[in-house]
Amino acid sequence: MRRRKILEGAVEATLFAAALLSVVTVVFITAFLFQRGSPLFEKVPVLEFLFSSRWEPTAENPGYGILSFILGSFLVTGLALLIAVPAGLAVGIYLAELSDGRSARFIRSAVELLAGIPSVVYGLFGIAVISAVSRTLFGGSGYGALSAAMILAIMTLPTIISVTEVSLRAIPRELKEGSLALGATHWQTITRVLVPAARSGILAGVILGMGRAIGETMAVLMVGGNAPIMPSGLNGMVRTLTMNIITDMSYATGDHLTSLFATGMVLFAFILVLNLVVQLALKKSISDLEGKSGE
């Protein structure tokens, strides 16, 4: 009996240590990033770093302005969501409500496969197919914001689809049954009852996808054009925060290197905000459901 208690205690301690490890890792990464990045602001004012678009780190009079990369990240991510959200919602609703078992299984495994494709493969696909498609449809060189957004849209689809489906399925049965019993059609039930009830969960999925899109590097690097300029339109070339870090990392030294860590800090801040929003949305979605089923 005692032995069992000791064993249980040991297992508990091990698991706790493992859990602690991830916390410690996050703390270390954050501390390291800020320790390496913040010295930049002794030389370059924060406002200039964030709101200047002059990025010439190796010039005689170096410029460290990342505004065009911040806007590039937002532009590409925004466009990607514009494509991915309607498509993802549609597929999620289809899977949760309209499909029969067989087609759902088939689509679900295809979506899972989509989620498992390495981003560099998406990039290759982008160079071979998407940049050509974008060049034919929208002109330009084919390397730009639109191509990057198309790739990111495909990459964020799995997240949005599965979270939408799960959120819809999590809605208490009574809600759907009640709506149908009141004489609403299936479609009315979906648009007026189910989707609104699942909105917080769906929102969380969209924001999770957004997090993936804003942090994605390899695929956008291969089709974005990577010119360090203000994005000049949908088919204009774009460089995002992640692309900026990876492009200069291999050679950068001194302040230039520090500025890349500072770019990382900005990216980190964006992701942090997105994560907080996701958690709030999920909390709300849970309390919504509890509130509704309790009524």
Partner: peptide
């Protein structure tokens, strides 16, 4: 002498 490439160029690694 000062490098002044066009910025409207695809940047590759």
């Amino acid at each position: 002498k000062a490098i002044a490439y066009t910025k409207n160029a695809i940047v590759t690694k």
